[in-house]
């Protein structure tokens, strides 16, 4: 197996492995549950992937640097609470406040990590706890008046769900930022080797804080979308979404150690996770076996998609 995967790693079509796996999975589901590949069902899968993708994109910025952001689900939940509370009061400006709150908590995570030199794992776990504490309270429903402002997010534009279009726009923006800007190149450099990046004159601290700020902002955006989809805000709204988001990043082929990856890979990774999960429901996998199958699929997926030629040490 090792020899085989190593040999595959040398071939040029390696970059195509994640998308190929995605297509393969879709075909697999269609074979076992005919009727899966229809326009409506696929659009449904896409819109049900939107929030996961936004969170995974947030996570991509930080993982690329070799860090990790465990606060994303708390930030997304906080954003949903802010939207639900402020929408009836100040209208659509509530979106801005929510996203700003995400930016601030991202900056806070970044500052704790960089200035106090606390590992990102613990720094973000702790800021996540603080943020979750701020969002305490019962679920708040967005009433009729507020739903006037959220309905566009749940609608369609040119035949495609708005959340899908939003995800595509955010995905493209993230892709461009990470590939073509100085910040993006610095991020890859820091992730690939922090001492070398420092020696080459990269402002590591600023790059890191920017990445965490981007992560917080996108997590909040995911929270806004969640709030619109569920017509409410709740401190538990984004629960259990963090690990799938991180898994999406890695399944897409981004290295957890940093320095390799992009938003395109994350999009494919998020879709793979979503197809596996929704596909299990479609195929009718025994409910008791669902977790076992999901776990095995995660391992299999990452074994196919990870690019061993470009990752020296796999930790």
């Amino acid at each position: 197996m090792t020899a085989l995967t190593a040999r595959l790693g040398d071939l040029p079509f390696r970059d195509l492995a994640p998308p190929a796996l995605l297509v393969g999975l879709v075909v697999l589901v269609e074979v076992f549950a005919p009727g899966f590949v229809t326009r409506d069902t696929l659009l449904m899968v896409l819109s049900d992937t939107a929030v996961l993708f936004l969170l995974a994109t947030a996570e991509t910025f930080v993982i690329l640097l070799g860090g990790i952001d465990l606060s994303i689900q708390a930030v997304a939940s906080l954003a949903s609470v802010i939207v639900a509370q402020l929408l009836p009061v100040i209208g659509p400006a509530a979106y801005l406040v929510a996203i700003l709150a995400g930016l601030l908590s991202g900056l806070a995570s970044g500052a704790v990590h960089v200035r106090l030199r606390v590992p990102s794992f613990v720094a973000t776990l702790a800021t996540g706890g603080v943020v979750a504490g701020l969002a305490r309270g019962r679920a708040i429903t967005i009433e009729e008046g507020g739903r006037f402002y959220t309905s566009w997010l749940n609608g369609t534009l040119w035949g495609a769900p708005v959340v899908v279009i939003l995800s595509v726009v955010v995905g493209l923006a993230g892709f461009v930022v990470l590939r073509y800007t100085r910040f993006g190149r610095f991020s890859v450099a820091v992730g690939a080797g922090e001492p070398a990046a420092w020696a080459a004159g990269v402002n590591v601290d600023r790059t890191k804080i920017t990445a965490f700020a981007a992560s917080g902002t996108l997590a909040a955006l995911a929270g806004v979308v969640l709030a619109a989809r569920l017509s409410s805000g709740s401190p538990n709204l984004a629960n259990q979404l963090m690990l799938p988001a991180i898994a999406a990043v890695i399944v897409g082929g981004t290295a957890i150690t940093g320095g390799l990856g992009n938003v395109g890979r994350t999009a494919v990774g998020a879709l793979i996770i979503a197809i596996v999960r929704i596909g299990m429901t479609f195929v009718g996998v025994n409910i008791f076996a669902e977790n076992v199958v999901f776990g095995a699929m995660l391992i299999a997926a990452v074994a196919v998609t990870i690019d061993r030629a470009k990752i020296a040490i796999i930790k």
Partner: peptide, 23 residues
């Protein structure tokens, strides 16, 4: 054996273990 990150390998075994215990 598969040369995959420990994060994913153990995330997988986490789900598998949880599923087995539930079953």
């Amino acid at each position: 054996g598969l040369r995959i990150p420990s994060f994913m390998a153990t995330l997988g075994t986490w789900f598998i273990g949880l599923g087995l215990a539930t079953y």
